[in-house]
Design a protein around this nucleic acid. Structure first.
Lengths: 366, 366
DNA sequence: GGATACTCTGAATGCGCTTCCATGCAGGGA
DNA sequence: TCCCTGCATGGAAGCGCATTCAGAGTATCC
C-alpha cells in the first residue's frame, strides 16, 4: 500500500487495493452502471478505506471540462475601504461608519441564485471579484478554470471579454447595453419598463405631477435606463418631459440623504415625489426626511428601485421595483449550459421582468 | 497555425508561433524572470495573438495544486423554499412573504471576506452550498477541486470531515465546539464573552434585573454559548441564575415577533429587557413591540447578536454584539495557507473577539 | 457442442502543463 | 587560448484521470 504521501491516494492505489485496473476504478466513479455490481463494491470499499478523492485537475484535463462555472463581478471595495473593513472587523473603528458597501450588496443574491442553479446541474461555482481596473488581468485567469463564465461587471475591457468568449461560453449580466451586443449572450433586467410602470403608478394612481428623479452615476447603464423609463411615463401622461435627473448620487444611503435634503431646500414647496434610482438612496432619503419632519407619503412620496429586503422593514415601507436577482444567476447558468451544449446556437439576450412593489412610501396600502 | 478547435490554443501552439519550446512558454507565464526579456516578449505576443489562456486543470495536475480555496456552507433553503424563491423571482408571489432566508445571510459576509483574502494571496474561491443531509457526498467532491477548504456548517458528518482533512487543509468555522476538537484547525467567535459583556452592560450600567433570553434552536452551538454568557453575567452580578432561555425561536424575524408577544403576555409587567440570541429575532421583536405600543427602551430594553447592517437602520437602533464575519473568512484563508505551507504545524483554534455595539435599544446614546 | 453476441475488464494513450536535467553559449580568469 | 561558471533554453518525463480498443469471459441459440 504505497499511498503517495504528498496528495492522497490515486486511482492507481485504489486499483491495486481492489485488485482491478485503473480503468475500472475510473468507471466506478464515473459511470457506475458499466461495472458489475460486485466489482463496483470492491472498488468503492477500497476507495473508502484509502480515503480516495478524485482529483478534479486530472479529471478536468482528461475530460476537457472542469465542472465549474464562474461568476466574475466587480469588487467595490477600493484598497482604502478594504483596510478599513479590516480595522472594523477588529473592532477598532467606531460603529456607524461606512457600511454602505456591505449593506445588501445585490451581487450576493446573484451569487446565491447562481450557486443553487449550478449545483442542481452538477456544477460548482467559482467566484472572482476584481477591482475594475484589473479586470483585464483577472478575467483570463478565471477563464482558465471554468467551463463557462458569467460577468456581472458593467465595464469589462472589450478585448479581454473577446478573448475569453472565444474560448468558452460567456454571459454578460445586466451589462452595458451598447457593449458587445450580438456577439455574446446577455441577460438584461427590465429597468426601463419597471421604472416606467412605477412612475405611471405615481402619476396616474396617485395624481402626482411634480416628481424629481435622483439618478445614479452617469456611467451606470442601469440607472440610465431607469431614468428613460421615468421620462417615458411623463410622455405617456402628456406631462412635460424631464430632460435630466433632478440630481445624481452614487447609490449609497448617504447620497440619498444628501440628495433629499438638497432637493427639499431647492424645490421643497413644489415637489410631490422623489423617485430614486435605487433603494439604498431612497432609504437614506427616508431617514433624512423623517428628521426634517417631512411626512412620507403625506408631504412627499418616495420610491426606490431594486427591492432590497431592507425596503420592507423601514417605515414607511418603501415602494420600489423589484429585480429578480437570484433569477439572474439562475438564468445565467441556464444560458451557459445551453451554449456549452451547442456552441453554434444563436446569441440570445433575454430581459428579465421586474415587478412594482406598491408599499406605503408612495401612498399605497398600510 | 493549427489551433485546437475544441478548447483553445495550448502551450504547443504558442511555442510554435513564438519559435520556442513549450518549457519556455511555461516559464514565461510562471516565472517570467527566468526568461530573457526579448524571448519573453516574443512569447507574450504570440500568446496574445492566439488568445492563449492557460488551462488550470493541466497546471493543477502538473503542479499538484489548484490555486483554489473552497468554502463549504449549509444551504438553508429546503426544496420547498427553493421553489418559492423561484416563484417570487417571477413576481408571482405576493410581496411580503418569506424573505427571512434572503435577509442578510451572514454567510455572505464570510464569503466576501474570504474571497478578498484569497484573491490577495493569489487564490480563487470556490463556494459550495449543500443541504446538510447531503454534506457527506458534496464535501469530497469539492475537496477534489481545492487546495484548502473552510467549512462553515455546524454538523458535517465526522467521517466525511476526517477523510477530507486527511487529504488537504481544512478549517472549521464557528462550528460545534465539541466536534473534532484537536484534530483540525478551527476558528471560533467569542459568543460567550460577547453575550456576557452585553448582559453585564444591561445589568450594571442600566440597572436591569429581569431579563429574558430568547434562545435559538437547541442544536445551535452558537446560541447555546450565548445563553451561557447570559447566565454568566447573572452569576457575576450575584443575580439568580436563569436555568433556561425564557423561550426559543428559529432565528427569524417572525420568530422574534412571536417570542416578543408571547413573553409580553406572559411576564410583560415584570420584564425589563429582552435579550435575543440573534439580530433578526430582535428586529422582529422591535416591530411587534412598536405595534403593541411598547416603548423601547423606555418600557423594555431589546438586544440582539450578530451586528447585521439592518440593526443600525431600525428605530431604535439595535444594541447588539458584533461578529467579525468578514474577518472570519480572512482568518480562514490565513490558516489554510499556513497549514498548506507546513502540514506539521500544531493545530490551532483561535477565537475571534466580538464587540458590543451600544445603541439606542438598550437605553444608550441617541 | 460450437458459434455468436454480449458484457466486463485491462492495456495503452493522451489531455496541457511543470519541472528536472541536459545542452549550448557567452564571458571571465588562468 | 582553454577551461570553468552561469545563464538561457530545449528535451523529456510524468501529474491522475478518461477513454478507446481489444481481449477474455459468459450466456444464448441453433
Amino acid at each position: 500500500m504505497s499511498v503517495s504521501e504528498t496528495s492522497g491516494p490515486t486511482v492507481y492505489d485504489v486499483a491495486e487495493r481492489a485488485g482491478v485496473s485503473i480503468a475500472t476504478v475510473s468507471r466506478v466513479y464515473r459511470n457506475p452502471d458499466t461495472v458489475r455490481a460486485a466489482t463496483r463494491e470492491k472498488v468503492l470499499a477500497a476507495g473508502q478505506e484509502l480515503g480516495y478523492v478524485p482529483s478534479a485537475s486530472a479529471r478536468g484535463l482528461a475530460s476537457r471540462s472542469t465542472g465549474v462555472l464562474g461568476l466574475f463581478f466587480p469588487d467595490f471595495a477600493d484598497p482604502e475601504a478594504e483596510a478599513q473593513a479590516e480595522a472594523r472587523a477588529e473592532g477598532s473603528v467606531p460603529d456607524g461608519a461606512m457600511e454602505d458597501v456591505e449593506l445588501s450588496f445585490y451581487g450576493d443574491e446573484v451569487i446565491r441564485g447562481m450557486e443553487r442553479a449550478a449545483r442542481r446541474r452538477g456544477y460548482a461555482l467559482l467566484i472572482a471579484a476584481a477591482p475594475m481596473d484589473r479586470a483585464g488581468e483577472v478575467l483570463p485567469e478565471v477563464a482558465g478554470r471554468v467551463d463557462g463564465l458569467a460577468v456581472l461587471a458593467h465595464h469589462v475591457p472589450a478585448d479581454a471579454l473577446d478573448m475569453v468568449s472565444r474560448r468558452l461560453p460567456v454571459v454578460v449580466l445586466a451589462g452595458d447595453q451598447a457593449r458587445g451586443r450580438g456577439s455574446v449572450d446577455r441577460i438584461d433586467v427590465a429597468n426601463f419598463d419597471g421604472q416606467m410602470e412605477l412612475t405611471r403608478h405615481l402619476i396616474e394612481d396617485h395624481g402626482l405631477r411634480d416628481l424629481a428623479f435622483i439618478g445614479g452615476p452617469e456611467d451606470s447603464p442601469d440607472a440610465g435606463a431607469r431614468f428613460r423609463g421615468f421620462q417615458a411615463a411623463h410622455l405617456a401622461a402628456g406631462l412635460p418631459l424631464p430632460e435630466l435627473p433632478a440630481t445624481r448620487g452614487d447609490l449609497t444611503l448617504a447620497a440619498g440623504r444628501k440628495a433629499a435634503l438638497e432637493l427639499l431646500d431647492r424645490d421643497g414647496a413644489r415637489l410631490q415625489g422623489l423617485v430614486f434610482a435605487n433603494d439604498q438612496m431612497a432609504v437614506g432619503a427616508l431617514h433624512a426626511l423623517a428628521e426634517r419632519g417631512v411626512s412620507v407619503p403625506g408631504d412627499l412620496a418616495v420610491t426606490g428601485f431594486d427591492g432590497i429586503p431592507l425596503g420592507r422593514l423601514v417605515r414607511p415601507a418603501l415602494t420600489t421595483v423589484r429585480q429578480p436577482m437570484p433569477r439572474l444567476g439562475e438564468r445565467a447558468v441556464e444560458l451557459l449550459l445551453a451554449r456549452l451544449a451547442d456552441r453554434e446556437r444563436p446569441v440570445v439576450s433575454p430581459t428579465l421582468p421586474t415587478a412594482v412593489a406598491r408599499r406605503a412610501s408612495c401612498g399605497c396600502g398600510a
